[in-house]
Design a protein around this nucleic acid. Sequence first.
DNA 1: ACAGCTATTTATAACGTTGCAAATGACCCA
DNA 2: TGGGTCATTTGCAACGTTATAAATAGCTGT
Lengths: 343, 343
Amino acid sequence: MDKKPTLRTIAEATGFALTTVSRALSGDPRIAQTTRDTVGRFAAEVGYVPDRAAQRLRTGRTNVISLVVSAHDEILGFRGSILAGLGQSLLGTRYHITMTPYGEDTDPMQPILHILRNRLCDGVVFSGTFPDDPRVTILTDEGFPFVSHGRTTLAAPHAWCDYDNDSFAQMAVGRLVARGRRRLVLLTPPPSRTYYRHMVAGFRAACAAAGVEAIVPEQVTLSTPPAELYRYFTHGLSRRDAPDGYVCPGEVAAMAGLAALQDANVAVGGKVDVIAKQTSHVFDQYRPRIDTIYEDLRAAGETLGQLLLRRIAGEDPADLQILHAPVPNFRTAEALSTGFETA
Amino acid sequence: MDKKPTLRTIAEATGFALTTVSRALSGDPRIAQTTRDTVGRFAAEVGYVPDRAAQRLRTGRTNVISLVVSAHDEILGFRGSILAGLGQSLLGTRYHITMTPYGEDTDPMQPILHILRNRLCDGVVFSGTFPDDPRVTILTDEGFPFVSHGRTTLAAPHAWCDYDNDSFAQMAVGRLVARGRRRLVLLTPPPSRTYYRHMVAGFRAACAAAGVEAIVPEQVTLSTPPAELYRYFTHGLSRRDAPDGYVCPGEVAAMAGLAALQDANVAVGGKVDVIAKQTSHVFDQYRPRIDTIYEDLRAAGETLGQLLLRRIAGEDPADLQILHAPVPNFRTAEALSTGFETA
DNA sequence: ACAGCTATTTATAACGTTGCAAATGACCCA
DNA sequence: TGGGTCATTTGCAACGTTATAAATAGCTGT
């Protein structure tokens, strides 16, 4: 493989000046069409691709997007799905993706500050948003393009993509109530997250509207280790006023619950129902079948990418806010009776 | 936030020349210890970090590692786990990670050629290795540092990290035989992959040694859609000479099989056993409990990173080959009888 | 034919870093 | 005193690109 072609290579071969070649390749209208064609053709022929480092040094643009996620966001492909979607939306653009993981012990602010200080990218995507998220504040103040996965309660508008957890909870409650459940439990994310509020609000509202009991445990969350969740479920079963419907907005939590029910010989769908939020396809093959509601993380990643590109292009953040709707995946009557459903 | 400090900032402030500052910061022994201290202290104070683009332009080193994975490698966090481990091993080094996904339709060679042509990184990690993998050939020829997840049958040694699928199969067969199974099926990866050979070899050898029947279906693989796998399993149950043990080296396939058994009212662990390869922790919460064998993809990612760093440092590829051993996760006697086991 | 255009092209200088060759000064020994 | 050695520091150039300002050529209209 011969030496990498540069602008100089092309300039010498075509007889034009360096500047002209550079302009021609960027499609500058000041350069004659014929010249642009000649240069473009030759560039394609030798397989010229601009040197990213040189471009970056000169312009300050990095052509890089950073995905900043907690090393903790690992459960069943959260990270991979977001990443896949992001990659999809950036395919064919000049942008590359770099991953910036941070440990559970580390401050979520640290990677952001590092990026800001060293201009490591042209835009940031992050998840796990808090109501009063300092990352949003500083990025907004600096005028640095970003999109958060999740909303805040901050006054200044910023770009975000979020899942409608309020609707999710309402939909889940609606389904459980339709199946005759009267004492519902919602397992929640850690209360510090913004979406805790949306989810609990939707849950309480729907329960109140339906006139059923709403139980929101405080001692366990979706981040509680599975073994402990298992015990929580097992405990609940033996209580006199045992809950008869569980909303589990996480796959691991749902499986822990289902395991507890099955180990206690409680038929799922009989005395008790469990409804899960599904971000992978695990439950498609799970038995017994349960009702689930999808959250498409890959689509979220794709939206995040698209919004970020538009933000980088200068669009108003207030126009860059997208809420994804939950998609129910409820068992059919047939599946409920036979336990089997053709895929 | 004031302007980003550069070498010049430090040079002017300390009174040393640009070159001296650069050397002092890189710990060059030709620079006096006192100078190094002064410069180092001041750099830390103003928060100097070298500009990656400039370094890269000057030295040709990118300080970037590329993870090249198929957009298809998505199932239950394959990609995320490898990535997490890779990130772990690169934490604290000067390397960043970039993801280069390629579509199922695209040639796996394409991203490699692109990287090679444009020197987009200092080292490559890729997975899904073939026996006669052209990626290995070209990267070796070019002398470009890389580590493959998986082996080849090529003569020239190269750096790799692999999972011992031969042992996996033997271990799985051993367990099934110990439980009295006599007609065993191995679901395989697509035959084009190198590890297909290892796995089938281990499976056949172990079956022969134990004197049990070895069935290796050709019409279905781990990449077959779950619904079709489901039908394959259902079909097998009704045959006169029905298999009584299934080795499923993939979580989705295992769950499809288990769903088929349960829908057909065949007790898992009764007439038939299923043993799965587990790369996430889904089966920890799955009921009925089944025997599994772990493949730690996070550890694989970490090993891949470590090997790549050593390869970049110039170590002989022949010394950079690591095989990860399977870790059995078999049900205890108690769990087998009660169906319950304390976590 | 000449000023005044427009269209197109060009030279030069940076961006921040590091490799190379050379310079400076201090010290030592004859 | 002067040449030689050593430790330390310095100036210059270059990596490949693009922004700025300036130059050139070709035209127009009077």
